[in-house]
Design a protein around this nucleic acid. Sequence first.
RNA 1: GGCGACGUGGCCAAGUGGUAAGGCAGAGGUCUGCAAAACCUUUAUCACCGGUUCGAAUCCGGUCGUCGCCUCCA
Length: 480
Amino acid sequence: MTLKIYNVLTRKKEEFVPLVEGRVNMYVCGPTVYDYSHVGHAKTYGNFDVIVRWLRYLGYDVLYVQNITDVGHMLDTGEDRVLKKARQLSAEPMQIVETYMRQYFADMDALGIQRPDISPRASGHVPEQIEMIEELIAKGHAYEVNGSVYFDVTSFPEYGKLSGRVLEDQEEGSREAVRTEKRHPADFALWKKADPEHILHWPSPWGEGYPGWHIECSAMATKYLGPTFDIHGGGIDNIFPHNECEIAQSEAANDEPLARYWMLVGSLTLDGVKMSKSLGNTLTVREALERWPAEAIRTFILSSHYSSPIDFSDEAVEAARKGWQRIWSAVVLVREQLRRAPEGEISDEVDVLVDATKAAFTEKMNDDFNAPAALAVLQDFTRQVNTLLNEQGPQTSGSLAAIDQLYRELGGDVLGIIPDEAEMGADAEREEGLIRLLIELRAQARAQKDWATSDRIRDQLRELGVVLEDRPDGTIWKFE
RNA sequence: GGCGACGUGGCCAAGUGGUAAGGCAGAGGUCUGCAAAACCUUUAUCACCGGUUCGAAUCCGGUCGUCGCCUCCA
């Protein structure tokens, strides 16, 4: 069974063949760190998180690079995003960058998104960027004007091959000052001369200045992954001009294809409207996490294919949360029963079920990382597990362990929606002991048909976020 | 105007040639001291029109509609 990936470059689903057997070099465009990350970031990096997890599950040795943009990303007013924020807060630009970069990692951590192997920062790779720009000038792909350097798009005939845009169709940009310097309206900045008030700047062969936005990705990808690597990812909204410019720069400088497979994820809208900094309708990851568990947000993100756009709304996330809860409840039940299960080998029935589930799940994920279909496999599995536990007496420890293991692998390691253990505080053991004690007392009350006491314990625990469920074989509990 | 997606049951969403996965919501039922959970049953011919084919949600053409990008955004 082989992995297939939809390659945006060829607009076809292709069999994945890495450059070096067993190894995957991968680059994903990262965020500009000048504000809190929002749920759009959660989708993009959550999607790639599962993609990387699946590649690793398949046994690939993955090197995952995701940049941090901390300089050069301009607003349409020509201002640097970071500098603008710094001025607003009367802070050092690098202070802003540091603050939001830490916050970005904290937010992604909270969502269970595994960190990239390398998170290179643009400001830390200025020499590499200058070097690439010099190479481009030397090869006739770039030219200098008044201390700024622009890429000459007419020198790269394949410009537009990713996004399908043709140069002649492009309308001219609106930045008058910039436009007059450029030979062609579609030419883009590799290096910008620093204005006197622009406090973030570096010396270069063309005077004091700073790198353009696109060049960082080309320079850093080349540095860490080589001139050609396996997968380049990012959000579909960056297909033009950013990704297109990356290809032009890298391929013009290195004389080699930049990436073999391009994977772009669909955008996220909020209540039907595209979330954007300029519109101000953003929902931050921290805000979302105050309302839903990380696993529920992940489940929502994974409930449609990575390449599709999704609409974030209370109802949609809530529906996903309930769907996730169903799976999680089954996991809790399995683990609870495992504590006191009779020793024994795995039953034939469970053995077959687990194998079939794994095979179905693998088939879906290998088909261009079809997480929603894989999730459905897990839902199907859950229904069968519930039936088994409810209607067929106690299962052996071998069977329960196999079921638990499958949840850990597919639900935990791959999809990241099944925690290893229920999240508990520092006094976890004491807390669990207290809950079990209360359950025991309640069992005594129930035996004496003292429903008042019994219900009081259940109701008050519920208020504390502990849900009790009475089953024929005893009471189980879980956090809400 | 150009480029690119998309339009599947009440909602979300898989499925890209052989008579429609899954989740949520709804209805009925089983179980239960009650509750919760779970399980069972139940709701679609795939925007519309035309074409190709023995056969299409799935391919081709057209119509209508939604969205993204073309300017900062993951």
